[in-house]
Design a protein around this nucleic acid. Structure first.
Lengths: 211, 211
DNA sequence: AACAGAGCGGAACGATCCGTTCCACTGTTA
DNA sequence: TAACAGTGGAACGGATCGTTCCGCTCTGTT
């Protein structure tokens, strides 16, 4: 509990608790099933439906907020990884951080369920820029095989996000396992370029079309 | 069209055509969205809903049939790959074949939406046996890094199946790209065992619980 | 002590969706 | 021409879900 919340008393305190409880519940629920009903979020958070609608005008609002937080988290992971001195380590730290935080599901799997705000567009642009910087550093480290492009990261994250078990901790363990395998695969310099035309920028943009 | 169908005339011929049209449409539709309505299948196949219900008692029946075909296809890919003389090539041919056929989505993503038949259980056991044989051969080839187990294949297939774009051909191209990266990652003998406790047999069985 | 109102739980409502049934219609076969 | 297999698609009934609404509780103020 934050000191801010602790300073409040009685009803106010509970309200502050609910703020975070609802966000966490929404994260868990929509991560497991992006189409989950809003009542499931309320149930998970241990509150009534009113508590939700007091904070968010409608379901779309909540989803948008969640995605916004996901983008922010992605940026935070990138900025933290950029501190790393070693170029290759910075790259792997970044990717591992994003996979661990399950941020991919929060952004991409929720895409198309709401109309994005201009602010989110800017954050997304920042995210691309940061990821590109990290990727370029990985390339200069010389450990990356030829023919790999930044966009490959998106799809690798997508593949990792598909690993999902009932147990959250186990899910993370296994995701790290296959992420490590893929990173080892990306680091086999002697293998030459991976097959097939590499993904192009914007090839995944269709996701953001309203469904 | 089969010769059997060509021999028939008029209404019978159309009926035979519908048989396959419906199955193909169902495959496409449920591959894209396992929870799709049955009317979407009819629309895609260009037939009315009656044509569906004449052939399958209900939705569950159709899903079960689809999954059954998927298992068969999996077995076929395995048996064909076992012809391959080279141990490592047999393994990669098998995995690539399964990814190309998008069989994983047909079986696992549909799991839990119907009650499986005993016959499917037997097919599943045969599938596990065949996959194990191919995996063992890959191990004896010496190109597989230590610490990798058969169950890893399931999860790698799962990761590949997550790559999905509107265009089917492009989807296959990109899946092959990341499958290749992962296979290269699995073949880095010098890297030692990948991190984390390896997946255990039956760790993915929860999928088949009725939802 | 009385009161105003913030915050809340959950029933109720209305819209939508979807699986399944039903019936009229069309060719085909005998 | 009669019987009927095969079909299209409207119609039905149940379930789901987003949202609204009402009555209650607790809190801070007068």
């Amino acid at each position: 509990m934050t000191t801010e919340a602790a300073a409040l008393s009685g009803r106010r305190r509970q309200a502050a608790r609910n703020d975070t409880a609802i966000l966490e519940a929404a994260r868990d629920v929509f991560l497991a099933d992006p189409k989950a009903p809003i009542s499931a979020v309320a149930e998970r958070a241990g509150v009534g439906i009113s508590a939700l609608y007091r904070r968010y005008a409608n379901k779309e609002d909540l989803l948008r907020q969640l995605c916004r937080d996901g983008l922010r988290r992605y940026l935070a992971e990138a900025e933290q990884a950029e501190q790393e001195a070693d170029d290759w380590a910075a790259f792997t730290t970044f990717v591992t951080g994003v996979v661990d935080a399950d941020v991919h599901s929060l952004t991409v799997r929720l895409a198309g369920t709401f109309t994005p705000t201009p602010e989110m567009g800017e954050d997304a642009a920042r995210a691309v820029a940061a990821a590109t910087r990290l990727f370029d550093r990985a390339q200069t480290s010389g450990r990356l095989r030829p023919g790999v492009v930044v966009q490959d990261i998106d799809l690798i994250l997508e593949a990792c996000a598909a690993i999902r078990l009932p147990d959250v901790a186990r899910t993370r363990e296994l995701r790290r396992r296959y992420l490590a395998v893929m990173l080892d695969g990306l680091a086999t310099v002697e293998a030459g370029a991976p097959p097939g035309p590499a993904p192009e920028p914007g090839e995944l943009n269709w996701r953001w079309q309203r469904r």
